[in-house]
Computed example of a mutant assay.
Amino acid sequence: MSDTPRHLNISKILGGRPSPDGSKVVLEVEDGDGAKLHLSVPPAQLVNCLPLFAKLASDCQAVGGGKPNPVYDVTRWELGTDRSRQEVFLSLNLPPGGRLTFHLPAPAPQGIYETLGQMLRVQAQISSSTH
Protein backbone atom coordinates (compact mmCIF):
# COMPACT_ATOMS: atom_id res chain seq x y z
CA MET A 1 0.00 0.00 0.00
CA SER A 2 1.31 3.44 -0.95
CA ASP A 3 1.79 6.28 1.54
CA THR A 4 0.94 8.79 -1.18
CA PRO A 5 -2.71 9.86 -0.99
CA ARG A 6 -4.71 9.34 -4.15
CA HIS A 7 -6.65 12.39 -5.28
CA LEU A 8 -9.88 12.07 -7.21
CA ASN A 9 -11.09 15.09 -9.12
CA ILE A 10 -14.83 14.52 -8.77
CA SER A 11 -16.89 16.87 -10.92
CA LYS A 12 -20.35 15.38 -10.27
CA ILE A 13 -22.13 13.09 -7.86
CA LEU A 14 -24.45 11.11 -10.13
CA GLY A 15 -26.33 9.10 -7.53
CA GLY A 16 -26.08 6.32 -5.04
CA ARG A 17 -27.58 3.07 -3.82
CA PRO A 18 -27.09 0.48 -1.13
CA SER A 19 -24.89 -2.49 -2.01
CA PRO A 20 -26.84 -5.73 -2.57
CA ASP A 21 -26.14 -6.92 0.99
CA GLY A 22 -26.65 -3.48 2.56
CA SER A 23 -23.15 -3.37 4.03
CA LYS A 24 -22.05 -0.38 1.94
CA VAL A 25 -23.44 2.70 0.28
CA VAL A 26 -22.22 2.94 -3.30
CA LEU A 27 -21.90 6.46 -4.68
CA GLU A 28 -21.57 6.91 -8.42
CA VAL A 29 -19.42 9.91 -9.31
CA GLU A 30 -17.90 11.40 -12.44
CA ASP A 31 -14.35 12.66 -12.52
CA GLY A 32 -12.96 15.64 -14.40
CA ASP A 33 -12.26 13.44 -17.45
CA GLY A 34 -15.86 12.17 -17.58
CA ALA A 35 -15.02 8.70 -16.23
CA LYS A 36 -17.59 7.17 -13.90
CA LEU A 37 -16.28 5.84 -10.60
CA HIS A 38 -17.91 4.07 -7.69
CA LEU A 39 -17.07 4.91 -4.09
CA SER A 40 -18.14 2.48 -1.37
CA VAL A 41 -18.69 3.73 2.17
CA PRO A 42 -19.98 1.88 5.26
CA PRO A 43 -23.43 3.31 6.11
CA ALA A 44 -22.31 4.13 9.66
CA GLN A 45 -19.78 6.58 8.21
CA LEU A 46 -22.45 8.61 6.43
CA VAL A 47 -23.35 10.39 9.67
CA ASN A 48 -19.94 12.08 9.45
CA CYS A 49 -20.71 13.47 5.99
CA LEU A 50 -23.56 15.89 6.68
CA PRO A 51 -21.83 18.12 9.25
CA LEU A 52 -18.48 17.82 7.48
CA PHE A 53 -19.88 18.69 4.06
CA ALA A 54 -21.90 21.60 5.50
CA LYS A 55 -18.75 23.00 7.12
CA LEU A 56 -16.63 22.53 4.01
CA ALA A 57 -19.27 24.21 1.81
CA SER A 58 -19.32 27.16 4.22
CA ASP A 59 -15.51 27.29 4.25
CA CYS A 60 -15.42 27.40 0.44
CA GLN A 61 -18.09 30.11 0.40
CA ALA A 62 -16.08 32.17 2.91
CA VAL A 63 -13.06 32.24 0.60
CA GLY A 64 -15.22 33.03 -2.43
CA GLY A 65 -15.25 29.60 -4.03
CA GLY A 66 -18.69 28.34 -3.15
CA LYS A 67 -22.35 29.13 -3.55
CA PRO A 68 -24.64 29.90 -0.62
CA ASN A 69 -26.03 26.84 1.13
CA PRO A 70 -29.18 25.64 -0.62
CA VAL A 71 -32.63 25.65 0.92
CA TYR A 72 -34.19 22.19 1.13
CA ASP A 73 -37.88 21.34 0.92
CA VAL A 74 -39.22 19.51 3.95
CA THR A 75 -41.96 16.98 3.17
CA ARG A 76 -42.70 16.17 6.82
CA TRP A 77 -41.48 17.22 10.25
CA GLU A 78 -41.84 15.78 13.71
CA LEU A 79 -40.95 16.97 17.21
CA GLY A 80 -40.26 14.40 19.87
CA THR A 81 -39.06 14.26 23.44
CA ASP A 82 -36.78 11.76 25.07
CA ARG A 83 -38.79 11.54 28.29
CA SER A 84 -36.01 9.99 30.33
CA ARG A 85 -33.62 12.85 29.57
CA GLN A 86 -36.20 15.60 28.86
CA GLU A 87 -34.54 16.45 25.55
CA VAL A 88 -36.26 17.65 22.39
CA PHE A 89 -35.55 16.25 18.94
CA LEU A 90 -36.60 17.66 15.56
CA SER A 91 -36.86 15.24 12.63
CA LEU A 92 -37.15 16.46 9.04
CA ASN A 93 -38.01 14.32 6.02
CA LEU A 94 -36.38 15.51 2.80
CA PRO A 95 -37.00 14.41 -0.78
CA PRO A 96 -36.37 11.78 -2.06
CA GLY A 97 -37.10 10.18 1.31
CA GLY A 98 -34.20 10.87 3.66
CA ARG A 99 -34.71 11.71 7.32
CA LEU A 100 -32.50 13.92 9.48
CA THR A 101 -32.91 14.24 13.23
CA PHE A 102 -31.49 17.09 15.27
CA HIS A 103 -31.10 17.35 19.04
CA LEU A 104 -32.32 20.71 20.33
CA PRO A 105 -30.63 21.32 23.69
CA ALA A 106 -32.15 23.79 26.13
CA PRO A 107 -32.84 26.67 25.74
CA ALA A 108 -33.15 26.21 21.96
CA PRO A 109 -36.76 24.85 21.96
CA GLN A 110 -38.01 27.85 23.95
CA GLY A 111 -36.09 30.25 21.70
CA ILE A 112 -37.49 28.63 18.57
CA TYR A 113 -41.02 28.79 20.03
CA GLU A 114 -40.68 32.52 20.83
CA THR A 115 -39.08 33.40 17.49
CA LEU A 116 -41.69 31.45 15.52
CA GLY A 117 -44.46 33.21 17.46
CA GLN A 118 -42.98 36.61 16.60
CA MET A 119 -42.61 35.66 12.94
CA LEU A 120 -46.21 34.42 12.75
CA ARG A 121 -47.52 37.62 14.35
CA VAL A 122 -45.62 39.75 11.81
CA GLN A 123 -46.85 37.56 8.96
CA ALA A 124 -50.46 37.90 10.21
CA GLN A 125 -50.11 41.70 10.36
CA ILE A 126 -48.73 41.84 6.82
CA SER A 127 -51.43 39.49 5.59
CA SER A 128 -54.24 41.49 7.24
CA SER A 129 -52.91 44.81 5.90
CA THR A 130 -52.89 43.53 2.30
CA HIS A 131 -56.53 42.38 2.42
Rank of each mutant, 00 (worst) to 15 (best):
K24G: 05
P109V: 02
A54S: 13
Q45H: 15
S11M: 04
M119S: 09
V26E: 14
K24T: 08
H7G: 13
P43Y: 00
V74N: 00
S40G: 14
G80I: 05
W77Q: 11
A108Y: 12
L46P: 03
S128Q: 03
P96H: 05
A108V: 15
K67S: 06
T115H: 12
V47F: 12
H7P: 05
G32P: 01
M119E: 14
A57V: 08
R99W: 08
L27K: 05
G22N: 09
G64L: 03
D31W: 05
T4L: 12
K24L: 10
Q45I: 12
L52N: 08
L27D: 06
H7M: 12
E114L: 13
E114A: 15
A44K: 05
L52Q: 15
Q110V: 10
L90Q: 03
M119G: 11
N69M: 10
N69P: 11
V74P: 01
S127G: 04
V25I: 15
S58L: 08
A124W: 04
S2E: 01
V41C: 11
G66Q: 11
V122M: 15
I10F: 02
L120I: 15
G97I: 02
T4I: 13
S129D: 07
Q110K: 12
A57T: 07
D82E: 00
P70Y: 01
A54N: 12
T75Y: 00
P107K: 07
A44W: 02
C49M: 15
L56T: 13
L52A: 15
P70G: 00
F53P: 06
G15M: 02
M119Y: 10
E28A: 05
L37D: 06
Q125E: 11
D33N: 06
L37R: 08
A124R: 08
P68F: 01
G117H: 09
L116V: 09
V26I: 15
D33H: 09
L120S: 12
S2K: 08
G16M: 04
V41F: 05
A62M: 11
G98E: 10
A35C: 07
